[in-house]
């Protein structure tokens, strides 16, 4: 966790106006029609993920519609999780005409550094209805332990 400087909102910040302008421009094309990962200026073609920390494990959920098992490669090295894959598009030349193309295709890679060591033996990943769920159980020694206090 990075340490962020605390800002006193009561003080006049000459940069605030500029920051507001920047965020407004960034939000300009992020209207509700499209998911935020396909904004005009955001050319990051990576599938959206959720990363949830639970008591005993981490769960990574990833949106991968239209992908098959063989297209996805999930690997872990020490505490870095990598989800790689190739999203095939309708690349073949067709006679017709496209009226709308919102679906992106191509290769993608997503790397996540995990906050704690995970038990790499027990990692499981499954794909259902275009959602990839990776369960990463925490190592035994990383789990919070309840220490009972004995009163003598």
């Amino acid at each position: 966790m990075a340490i962020v400087k605390w800002k006193n909102k009561n003080l006049y910040d000459p940069w605030a106006e500029l920051t507001n302008l920047q965020s407004e421009i960034n939000e300009l094309f992020n209207y509700d029609r499209l998911p935020s990962t396909t904004g005009l200026f955001e050319r990051s073609v990576t599938p959206a993920i959720n990363f949830v920390e639970k008591e005993n494990e981490y769960t990574v959920t990833c949106e991968l519609p239209g992908l098959e098992e063989k297209d996805i490669d999930v690997s872990i090295a020490s505490s870095v999780l990598t989800i790689k894959g190739n999203k095939k598009g309708s690349s073949e030349e067709k006679k017709g005409k496209y009226y709308k193309r919102e679906i992106w295709s191509g290769g993608f890679q997503r790397t996540l550094s995990l906050p704690h060591m995970v038990d790499s033996e027990k990692i499981s990943a499954d794909l259902k209805d275009g959602m990839l769920t990776v369960s990463l159980p925490k190592k035994e020694e990383m789990k919070p332990k309840q220490i009972s206090v004995k009163v003598k």
Partner: peptide, 25 residues
């Protein structure tokens, strides 16, 4: 609710809509 990412393609025989709906069975 929000619209899914869609490709709309007009062919000779039909209009094909491809929609990305991850998590929908």
């Amino acid at each position: 609710s929000f619209p899914a990412c869609t490709d709309i393609y007009l062919g000779e025989e039909s209009v094909v809509l491809t929609m990305e709906m991850p998590g929908v069975s």
